[in-house]
Design a binder for these strands. Structure first.
Lengths: 213, 213
DNA sequence: TTGTGAAAGTTATAACTTTCACAAGCGAAT
DNA sequence: ATTCGCTTGTGAAAGTTATAACTTTCACAA
């Protein structure tokens, strides 16, 4: 794999995650090699762009045969930084938070939910999979003690700003914001990635409309 | 608004949804006009591209002042096809499904969840907000009777294929697939939009890695 | 050893996107 | 009415991305 770090756009990164998903799927079918044309049909992309993406990172296959699946998974993982375990905490142990912790592929991404926080006393002390729920009051002490860098936010809109402002940017470096509150891409040097579930429905809405034109 | 339908790429569509989210937020602060530079800082985009996007669709502002928020919301809604109510059903009334139905901005997108389906007898008959949960056996009859075009899939991985194959493509035109199963972008003429929650974590993972280089 | 088929790797180009810089125009104030 | 400040709208240039077409190389079999 090439070592120099050229700028990679988010489109490319998103494609890499698609490849990864596809590769993990094909791997568990017992295959060891995969052709670019195979990834192509599975992901709905042209095979040429897949080969180009891979070559760009110095990930090579075997001409006439295809790519080694295990090797590919390893390399893409390395590019995305999935090779190191990242401790994260979840804030907001509602339906969405619970769903995320239980989501099948998240353990593959090497995200380790070491704690969840909520202000609902019925939930405090309970578990979601292997993750314990604590009172939200304890969050900053916990972050400091465990040097948490990543926070997943799945709280109600009304709570969001207060919590974001309270997070100690000495430790927290990234927030995955699943609330529908708009946060700036960077705040106090914390990288914020906004995810809006409604967005996907809106995109579908456009596609449906376009198709019936 | 321009009437001719040029091809619009998904990047642009996604930006439009960002504008919409921003506009709704600013609207509820009581403002009536907004500058492109304001949307710009909120969404983390250059103001020039916002103006370009809007002009492209024939949506114009007032020079020296900005854009009329209500008008902008209306126009973007029209472009995305949010102006018409779309009846949808949810399959899989687990945490993720529940979270989606309750997600704040989804009603804005004019998606109307008229029914949910699950195979867990404890859930059948219960409600999520205003949406009743039915037995999954009844799904095809329901789709036929109510001419449902959009299905939201939030079932376990093991159930996914069986359900997708069983959906009647005479009625169903779009599937929003939140399971982590890879589905092709189109199947039996049904448009499929895959959403993988793990993807967002993987993207964040890359960003975090990049920042520490 | 050599020939062949298949798929990777590469290059050139077309298509698309973003950005910049500035002209144009609106509205408020004088 | 005129000026001034402000922000939109846009054309051209720069930058980026995707695609098709082409070349190379590998593995296997004859």
């Amino acid at each position: 794999m090439k070592n120099f770090q050229e700028k990679i756009s988010e489109v490319v990164i998103r494609r890499l995650t698609d490849y990864l998903r596809c590769l993990n799927y094909v791997k568990q079918e017992g295959k060891t090699l995969i052709k670019s044309s195979n990834i192509s049909t599975k992901c709905g992309l042209k095979s040429s762009i897949i080969r180009k993406d891979l070559a760009r990172f110095g990930v090579y296959g075997i001409k006439g045969k295809g790519y080694d699946i295990d090797e590919l998974i390893k390399q893409i993982g390395k590019i995305l930084g999935l090779d190191k375990t990242k401790n994260v905490v979840l804030i907001g142990a509602g339906n969405l938070g619970t769903a995320i912790i239980k989501y099948p592929r998240i353990k593959n991404a090497n995200f380790n939910f070491i704690a969840a926080f909520d202000n609902n006393s019925d939930k405090i002390g309970k578990m979601i999979n292997d993750t314990q729920i604590y009172s939200i009051d304890k969050i900053n002490k916990f972050i400091k003690k465990n040097k948490i860098e990543i926070v997943l936010l799945t709280v109600p809109v009304s709570e969001t700003m207060k919590i974001v402002d309270s997070l100690d940017s000495k430790f927290v470096k990234g927030i995955l914001n699943f609330t529908s509150v708009i946060l700036p891409p960077k705040k106090n040097n914390i990288f914020i990635h906004n995810i809006d579930l409604a967005k996907e429905l809106e995109v579908l809405s456009y596609c449906m409309k376009k198709c019936t034109l």
